[in-house]
């Protein structure tokens, strides 16, 4: 079959909302884009364990400690489903991990910000998971089957995390003056970085057009960002807190909130590796990987010996 025929069949499927499956023919660029996006997503889940893991030992009640541990563990689970999805496209988990540790593969920049107080556990759940969900709900309908199915499962857990985050802040917002201040401070620090999670403006984004045509992405960065702002601007009222943007205002004509300009210099600095915790996050992953090397080797060696012994028994 001619290449253009294959491409036509492929695009027809996408247009008809038929999922692309691992054994189907697909353009190289589609495969690469999906590998890049899914592995980046998997890395984000795994690196994302670190800022929240930072508060497990200090969680202020047994219930909060259990919730936080379960949440961070869910993220590890999401990492696993996503690595498996990416593997269906012909890359291995080891290869992906290698790319993360060498700095070649990216992960979500949001995890390069520090979690400084307990209120950050609430703000991360509410704002960071909240922003992630909008992306992920869209990805439940993405054109690559294994990715879409992984996202359905992940979305259920993420929306639970977001509610838990909001509830953490709600308790603080009704607490002592110090707790209220802690709550507002966390919102102030996490608001702008969470808006940056949607990526550059559409006019600046290099991958958007093709991704929309292939239905890898179904909404643009700016559309998702606006949707997020409209949602959070209402929810923050329930907390009795404010968002740190004096330009934030309901626009009756647009039926959306207007908002101030993101600090794009900061955005690019963090993307390029100069965020407050880029080095620490990557170092922590490298250390875990290096410290675990002897454990993984021992597991392989034992498995091989066991197999040998069984073979000898049979012989």
């Amino acid at each position: 079959m001619q290449l253009q025929d294959l491409e036509k069949i492929f695009q027809d499927k996408i247009d008809k909302e038929i999922k692309i499956e691992p054994k189907d023919w697909m353009p190289d660029a589609y495969r690469k884009t999906n590998i890049r996006q899914i592995s980046q997503h998997a890395h984000s889940e795994v690196v994302g364990m670190l800022p929240e893991g930072n508060w497990i030992s200090r969680a202020p009640s047994l219930k909060r400690k259990a919730i936080l541990i379960a949440k961070v563990q869910d993220e590890a689970g999401h990492g696993l489903y996503l690595y498996s999805s990416a593997e269906t496209l012909g890359t291995s988990r080891d290869e992906m991990l290698e790319q993360l540790l060498s700095g070649k593969a990216k992960y979500s920049s949001i995890f390069n910000y520090p979690t400084l107080t307990w209120a950050d556990m609430g703000a991360v759940g509410w704002l960071v998971d909240g922003a992630a969900i909008l992306n992920q709900v869209m990805l439940c309908r993405t054109s690559y089957g294994p990715y879409a199915r992984a996202m359905v499962r992940i979305c259920k857990e993420e929306s639970f995390h977001q509610r838990q985050g909001f509830e953490t802040l709600l308790v603080l917002s009704k607490g002592t003056d110090e707790q209220k201040a802690m709550c507002q401070d966390a919102i102030n620090r996490w608001w702008w970085p969470s808006l940056m999670m949607f990526g550059p403006r559409d006019s600046e984004s290099t991958n958007s057009d093709q991704s929309v045509k292939w239905k890898i992405k179904r909404k643009t960065n700016d559309e998702l960002r606006q949707q997020f702002i409209d949602m959070i601007a209402e929810q923050v009222k329930v907390l009795g807190m404010t968002l740190p943007d004096d330009k934030l205002k309901w626009n009756e004509e647009r039926k959306h909130y207007d908002f101030g300009e993101i600090d794009w210099d900061e955005f690019w600095a963090v993307v390029k590796g100069n965020g407050p915790c880029n080095k620490q996050r990557l170092d922590a992953r490298k250390k875990a990987h290096a410290d675990g090397a002897w454990v993984r080797e021992a597991a392989l060696a034992h498995a091989a010996k066991k197999k040998n012994r069984q073979l000898q028994k049979v012989a």
């Binding site: 795994v46 364990m49 670190l50 893991g53 497990i56 030992s57 400690k65 541990i69 961070v72 563990q73 590890a76 689970g77 990492g79 696993l80 690595y83 922590a284 250390k287 875990a288 410290d291 675990g292 090397a293 454990v295 993984r296």
Partner: peptide, 20 residues
């Protein structure tokens, strides 16, 4: 729980955290 996020391999990170 000190292992959470720092385990030798993802599956075992989950296992030790689960025990926690």
């Amino acid at each position: 729980s000190e292992w959470c996020g720092h385990g030798p391999i993802l599956e075992q990170d989950i296992a030790i955290t689960n025990i926690s």
